[in-house]
């Protein structure tokens, strides 16, 4: 069991949370090409390393939160900026939060 730092509730057991997905930027539906839209829907970076993710604290504050997690060791740490709520509630995480782990894939 590892723990996740919730900005509202503090460090809590992972079993209180639901994993929502990798943080990603939703393209503008008016201008996005089908390719961009499908990439947004399906593609995963799936890195082995630090990854910025969205989690839902179902057994706590019931908020969508952003957190950085190392996908090999399951270490976690808070991210600097909380995700935008409206977007995260749609199921897919914080805007523009790819930056901290942008180079860990290569």
């Amino acid at each position: 069991m590892f723990r996740i730092p919730c900005p509202h509730c503090g460090l809590r057991n992972v079993s209180e949370f639901r994993h929502v997905g990798e943080a990603r930027t939703r393209p503008d539906p008016h201008t996005a090409t089908p390719e961009q839209w499908r990439a947004y829907l399906y593609e995963q970076r799936n890195v082995a390393g630090w990854s910025v993710e969205s989690w839902y604290h179902g057994s706590g504050c019931r908020q969508y939160i952003g957190v950085e997690r190392h996908t090999v060791t399951n270490e976690t740490r808070p991210i600097a900026r909380a995700p935008e709520s409206g977007h995260a509630a749609a199921g897919s995480a914080s805007p523009d939060a790819g930056a901290p782990d942008a180079d860990s894939a290569s």
Partner: peptide, 18 residues
């Protein structure tokens, strides 16, 4: 389980999570 990492080496991103 490592398919995304290996595909990324060829620049192909996959709809896979491990």
């Amino acid at each position: 389980g490592w398919a995304s990492l290996v595909s990324e080496l060829a620049g192909v991103r996959l709809p896979i999570s491990t």
